[in-house]
Design a protein around this nucleic acid. Sequence first.
DNA 1: TCTGGGGTCCTAGGACCC
DNA 2: TCTGGGGTCCTAGGACCC
Length: 436
Amino acid sequence: MGPPSGDRRMYAIVDCNSFYCSAERVFRPDLWHKPVVVLSNNDGCVISISDEAKNRGITMTDPFFKVKDSLVKNNIKAFSSNYNLYGDMSKRVMDTLRHVVGKENVEVYSVDEAFLNLDHIPPHLLDNLAFELRSTVEQWTGVAVSVGIAPTKVLSKMANRLAKKNKKQSQCVMVLNTPEKIADALIKTRVGDIWGIGRQYAVKLERFAIYDAWQLSQMPEEWMRKNVGGVTGVRLLKELKGEPAIGMEDELDEKKMIATTRMFGAPVKELGDIKEAVATYTSRAAEKLRRQHGAASVISVFVVPKEDRKENEPFRHGPMQSLHTILPLATAVTSELIKPAMYLTEQLFKKGSFYKKAGVMLSGIVPDETVQGNLFVPRGQNNGRMLMSMMDNINFSMRDDVLKFAASGTARNWKMRQEYRSPRYTTRWDELCEVK
DNA sequence: TCTGGGGTCCTAGGACCC
DNA sequence: TCTGGGGTCCTAGGACCC
């Protein structure tokens, strides 16, 4: 059910340009306008590239070891990812957006993107607002952004993408506020570039000879329901036609599932090492859980064995092996979660195998204060709570795992590589930017 | 040698109940 | 010879997103 006629909707999406690279360069004037890339955890592959690096032929998700030589040759600076820095820069960007349009009109969508509700902005002011958003964020935070504005979220993403594609001409801003502009944008967008159409559906649509967003927008609703993911496809169709079907989300950061997973620095074959890693991930997941005042009633552990690869086969992740336990009582106490996690790890482990990755998932999450009593568990088992919040506070302020459970170990043979990490300028006093 | 991590939503189908 | 129908709940898996 769309809004009644006469009711006008308008959404913006504000998206940081090459966010991780931009964040790295804010405190490094010597790298402004220079080619830069940021690597994933474990320095595995390239996950953010500046325009200058893109122009030298580097692409997203290139494995680092394959492009290392080319980076050196082209004088491209590589950083390991530094999530403390990105989290802090993200907060500054979001706070700026809240200041400009009011905090009730901002929905943080990811670390580097936010949807804005612009229903209340008079149509003739939309262009000005778009430029104001861009320049205010840039002045206050040093991060460049692109702005797309349109009557639906899907169309605003489309506008943003087109603005980014041609930055010189668009000045990183595109407003789709007439049927003509919308039609033009639809024609210029290939199906695979639509927000909500991934690889699988793109292939399928092209087999039906549907190549661009305009063609897709002309399909009947029932066809979409049958072929493009049921109700999801129907919503997408409406959005393409300019009828809002995806509204602003309330900002509750209560996750239904919390996961902590990592690749190992190198394949691991000792049960002890894997248990240390799983214990560490469990502690981390439990911290996230407590931060949202939740308690988990299901814990699952998974491992991914290192696969034998045949020459010339395209890379793929091996199948993951997982087991879960339903806890007798939902908990957020690390030690109560580590115990079943250790047991599950032992069950999964096969002697002689090499593993390259492990992870922990917490689900069945309920609010901590409504944890129901269980007749079969003795009372007074909540004694871990105080200790937990103390550990969280210390760990938060120090930003490194100063306090750990013994199970997490100290050897850390499994720890990931991070050879190129920048200092944590904004969150650690001893790594503040030096001004000469 | 070496290819990230953390989420959400939806659907189909099985188990189970009356 | 004949072998129901409808509802709910749960889980696995597929698709997507950044």
